[in-house]
Design a protein around this nucleic acid. Structure first.
Length: 226
DNA sequence: TCATTAATGTGTT
DNA sequence: AACACATTAATGA
């Protein structure tokens, strides 16, 4: 129940409503690597991600995965005809052990009817995502690869990073290919740009460690320049 | 641990 | 940015 109250959409609900949701959509534990949702099968549902991380991706014509984005604790996603939260034609994979609730379309819509304020809240969440998407588009259209990459890292870091002194620590397991796909660059350019940023001391990576450390001030100042 | 595959680094066009 | 190729890391039997 505590986890439910951590979900953005649900945080202001009274306890009795949380119990109601728990009854309709019991929490399930999803092992790392599980495909939660894939195109083709279309059980319209809303997912409440309580804890963990999921990766949204598509497949290109060669069958390679193309990462669209990452969602973390407290996010909602899924395909409910009433309000698309955007997973049609995309795969959703658990990047780590994840706790989530699955709410079917009927239950979700019933619940929304009872709770107009929830619908308003949902609009707010979708609006925020749209705003971020527009910001990303503008950035993709006009920025250099370095600027786009820094922008992406800043987004990831704000959602998933931990502040450690003058640095952000990011423990995402994204390949350079994934990062490249998200900013519309090639894998090689992303590798080269990351190396360059490492030389400049903006980011650093400990050997044999997946965590990426990003100097906060340097990142911000570099985003404003180039 | 070792062998195989995946990811990454870099020079050239 | 695309390509080729070298090097290094990750995986799993």
């Amino acid at each position: 129940m505590w986890y439910l109250s951590q979900i953005n959409l649900m945080e202001e609900l009274p306890l009795e409503d949380l119990k109601e949701i728990e009854r309709m959509a019991p929490m399930s534990k999803i092992p790392k690597g599980t495909i939660i949702s894939s195109p083709g099968e279309a059980p319209p549902a809303l997912y409440l991600l309580k804890k963990g991380k999921v990766r949204l991706y598509k497949l290109n014509r060669e069958g390679k995965e193309f990462t669209l984005g990452i969602l973390g604790d407290g996010n909602i996603f899924g395909e409910v005809e009433t309000f698309s939260t955007g997973t049609r034609d995309t795969y959703v994979e658990a990047m780590e052990e994840t706790l989530l609730c699955v709410l079917n379309k009927k239950d979700f819509e019933e619940f929304m009817k009872e709770r107009p304020q929830l619908a308003i809240k949902l609009i707010g969440i979708l609006t925020e995502r749209l705003r971020e998407a527009e910001e990303m588009l503008e950035n993709l259209a006009y920025g250099s690869v370095q600027k786009r990459l820094l922008y992406l890292l800043s987004k990831l870091v704000h959602h998933f990073g931990n502040q450690k002194g003058a640095y952000w620590e990011l423990d995402l397991r994204l390949s350079h290919q994934d990062l490249a796909a998200m900013i519309g660059a090639t894998r090689e350019t992303v590798s080269a740009t990351l190396s360059e940023l490492t030389r400049q001391g903006v980011i650093s990576k400990e050997r044999n460690k997946r965590d990426l450390r990003i100097h906060r001030k340097k990142m911000e100042s570099m985003m404003n320049e180039k």
